[in-house]
Nucleic acid binder design. Structure first.
Lengths: 153, 153
DNA sequence: TATTGTTATACTCTATAACTATA
DNA sequence: TATAGTTATAGAGTATAACAATA
């Protein structure tokens, strides 16, 4: 709204991006907890579960590198989510050092619920944008992702 | 890149936004720590410092509500930043329950350095976008912010 | 000797609840 | 009685380092 005639710097764009995301993040967590999903399903844990869901079976090792977290951090996620009976550890028969994780029977329906809640939240937040604007926003964000990922050597 | 002919859902846009921001956040923290800024200057602490900087003098109370955090959380930021001699507490003469915080002498130059580092990081990340695209991205993000803020009743 | 996952430990961000000093 | 800030406590997310079992 400001800066009509002035030049917008790179720093300002990034600050806006960070600030907006902070707001959205809070809003999203609020929607999640208001929608019947248990409190222990936080954003990072949902991301973890969805990754296991998409992989079917996955080794600790593998999910850590996929999510860009340390092995120790993955262990903690699995500890917490196994305690809630959302996933199970099984030993890898082909390498007895390794542990394979997969979803429990009850996890998929919970993941679906959480995604639905997220969708509803997204609808409210994205409501005032036209379809074309949403598509364009997504393209711009995708380009940022690509740029960031390629700059991590 | 995918979804050329299919419909993009609200949920997908939000997921992309969250994922992109995660990446950018990590990248930004990496740049910050690689640029000579002390490690204890984290993202949230920098945001806190910038808010104090812009206000000049501000009460604990006030900055907490401005940043949308609890009083307790503000106390912790001030504890940490005061220990690093970046800001100082002074009693409010007009209300002896209240505490006014302001930057120390050394803080402004550090804030400027951090912002410069952030700018450099932003330049790298936003490099492949044209100026028009960056402006448009920022407008879209601003609209999201407004929508989120107005939906917190 | 290298790799997988775990125990041990620590730090940051965030919160709620109880309390103290003041209004 | 209400408000400002603090102590006490907790939990999530993240990390590094040391270690055991296995390759």
């Amino acid at each position: 709204m400001k800066k009509n005639s002035e030049t917008i710097t790179h720093g300002e764009v990034l600050e806006t991006l960070i600030r907006t995301t902070h707001l959205l993040h809070r809003q999203f967590e609020a929607y999640l907890s208001a929608s019947g999903i248990p409190e222990y399903i936080t954003g990072p844990r949902l991301r973890f579960l969805v990754t296991v869901f998409e992989a079917g079976k996955i080794r600790m090792n593998e999910i850590a590198s996929k999510l860009g977290i340390q092995a120790r951090t993955a262990t903690q996620f699995v500890d917490a989510l196994e305690a809630e009976r959302l996933l199970v550890r099984t030993p890898d028969p082909s390498d007895r050092r390794a542990t394979i994780i997969q979803l429990s029977e009850t996890a998929p329906s919970l993941i679906a619920e959480a995604r639905t809640a997220m969708s509803r939240a997204a609808e409210k937040v994205l409501e005032p944008m036209s379809y074309e604007e949403r598509v364009y926003l997504m393209q711009l964000l995708d380009r940022l992702s690509v740029q960031v990922e390629s700059s991590r050597e």
